[in-house]
Design a protein around this nucleic acid. Structure first.
Lengths: 356, 356
DNA sequence: GTTTAGCACTCGATACAATAGAGTGCTAAC
DNA sequence: GTTAGCACTCTATTGTATCGAGTGCTAAAC
């Protein structure tokens, strides 16, 4: 190892050039290509030497002796950390994303799906999202409504506009006034509680406060419990899986299958996303083998978190080939995060600072 | 054309054998294979002659001169219409599907997703489902609930247990009694109406019946309208897309991509499913080019409809390669349909015959 | 000392010919 | 009517030669 093995500005420029080219073409990049396309004022021979050094240092790899170089994970890492030049999105892009995102959003579930879909469309990769379980979520209201003879509806509303409901069938048709009374008691007892303060005991304990035969009350209480319980049963959102099929690195059906199967499990989505809770305000990038999950080892995950109100935090991200267009993805991600946050707050009226 | 060109029992047996084999192997089937594996008491030469006839008649095709035969669409058609021997599912299979399906179903949306997922898992193909729009659906109840200061929740329930809700923000916090009154008037005016009897006029007309400043009432009425409108905005359910990647006929990424992209549009799903409304009680099969949609021309769609209550009809189906295991798929489909119907009725208490 | 031109070398990709084998159609014998 | 036998067709495979992109190294130029 002599001095030429140390990193210098020129090596970085070459590395950046190689990665930029490789991102576009998916073909190994040779020294001549770099010499021709980028005006570094260097001959191919010089570049060749530098590339050999970069390979020795672990930033580039060679599929076989007489091929060009492709970036290694270490190379991509350096690239996204220091070399990348963030491209501004064009005004049209920004506007089109902005318009798309604010189009319609009247419910959390739909908003999430909408955001996911926009993200995958804008990037051309797979987009994923979850709202991780967090049971400090607080119940805002619980109500029981008569629907038709023999049927009631239990509705519960939690922070962040999460609404769940259950139909209850009961053999006798209760008096509307009775339903209203039950509803009122339930609401006064339960609303304001945190999710983790609620369990079957608490709910069943409520029957002490209502003088009514168990046979009538129990189905209702069970439904309430069930309904509240489903508040933090969260789903994962996935969109744009088709997109990946367009990239040559995903032409192998078994690889694609493994990846797609991975995305069927909500659990895995969470694992892909919740990589790094600490710097949650920023964009996190997991390149290839940096991913924990085996099946995602030749993909890159770019993700970010977004606080929603005081007690929830959603994660959104995209999955693509390691040679993804990082610059563009990061820009879109940041924009999307901001717009999503806006949209959420517009919908649910700020971060509910009237808490405690 | 001499007498040997007419269809006879032996030809049918050979056709069945070819199709059965091809379904298993996805390779062109030669005369020797048939002579060896199936005891038809015939030599390969005889079978060869018959196969040549079958080809001339359009039931078989030959990829090239010196290859075996593969079934044509016409061949498959004959097969499913007359030749197929329905295999009984094993008891274990039936039990496992039955258990899976009755596991958890407390809401229509979830039930649909659940059924779709089971269907794709049981068959190994893609499963799809929709509940086509039908606006004779009837509103059962509409209610407005206070959630927290400045926020109300509008809930509407339609036949078949379809529940929708919208959050409403209003600048002033209305008195609970006022909310209750509005709720009562709304409910009495709207519940019982058919979807197609409801429009913006009707809803806004309700304000005549409530003496209250517009500024307070209008957001609520708009939300009600919106909420009711979303009752028949139906989604399509798709599951098991990964499955197809395992079959050699779907190894071509561009073909797969086209098919998958097709499935992104709810509209297309409906088109694939609602082929044949007439014999809706039975299983409908669309083989290859029989499909209307270009992108599904080398797949087969097997579907069936299932009445839900009096006013809704859902369609479920599966998509697979034309050489799918028809026998098994049909059995599973019928079982699934029956179990689904049961489950639905269990959930929503029969077909609500107290209508009119 | 650094850069570059030049050249031998490597190795995948492409093209082409030869071969093997599966399957057919046809004819003649049973 | 059935089947054994055979010539024929066409794909898939294998082997061989060639091409070319790209490399590493050396020696000359700067």
């Amino acid at each position: 190892m002599n001095s030429s093995d140390w990193m210098n500005e020129r090596k970085l420029n070459i590395l950046r050039a190689v990665i930029n080219d490789y991102i576009m073409t998916a073909e190994p990049i040779g020294s001549r290509t770099i010499a021709r396309k980028h005006e570094l004022g260097l001959s191919s021979a010089t570049i060749r030497n530098e590339m050999a050094d970069l390979e020795e240092m672990g930033y580039l790899a060679q599929p076989h002796t007489s091929a060009g170089r492709i970036p290694s994970v270490k190379g991509y890492r350096l690239y996204v950390d220091h070399l990348i030049r963030l491209t501004e999105l064009t005004l049209e892009e920004v506007i089109s994303i902005r318009n798309a995102i604010s189009e319609q959003a009247f419910e959390l579930n739909r908003l999430m799906r909408h955001v996911t879909s926009i993200l995958s469309e804008a990037t051309g990769y797979i987009s994923i999202a979850t709202i991780p379980k967090m049971n400090q979520n607080k119940i805002k209201a619980v109500q029981v409504l008569p629907v038709e003879p023999g049927k009631l509806l239990v509705v519960s509303v939690a922070e962040g506009g999460i609404v769940r409901n259950r139909l209850v069938r009961i053999s006798v048709t209760p008096d509307p006034n009775f339903v209203q009374k039950v509803s009122r008691v339930l609401n006064s007892k339960i609303s304001g509680l945190n999710m983790n303060e609620i369990n079957l005991e608490v709910i069943r304990g409520i029957k002490e406060d209502i003088q009514v035969p168990d046979s009538m009350l129990m189905p209702i209480l069970d439904a309430v419990y069930d309904c509240i319980g489903s508040i933090d049963s969260n789903e994962a959102y996935v969109d744009g899986t088709v997109n990946l099929l367009g990239y040559p690195e995903f032409h192998d059906p078994v690889r694609v299958r493994e990846l797609f199967r991975l995305l069927d499990e909500e659990n895995n989505i969470q694992q892909l996303l919740n990589r790094d809770e600490t710097n949650s305000t920023n964009v996190t990038i997991s390149i290839g083998t940096e991913n924990r999950l085996e099946q995602a080892r030749d993909s890159t995950v770019v993700s970010t978190s977004c606080p929603m109100g005081d007690s929830m935090m959603s994660s959104i991200g995209i999955i693509g080939p390691t040679r993804m267009d990082y610059s563009r993805v990061i820009s879109i991600m940041k924009l999307d995060r901001r717009l999503f946050k806006n949209e959420f707050e517009k919908l649910y009226n700020g971060n509910n600072s009237e808490e405690t």
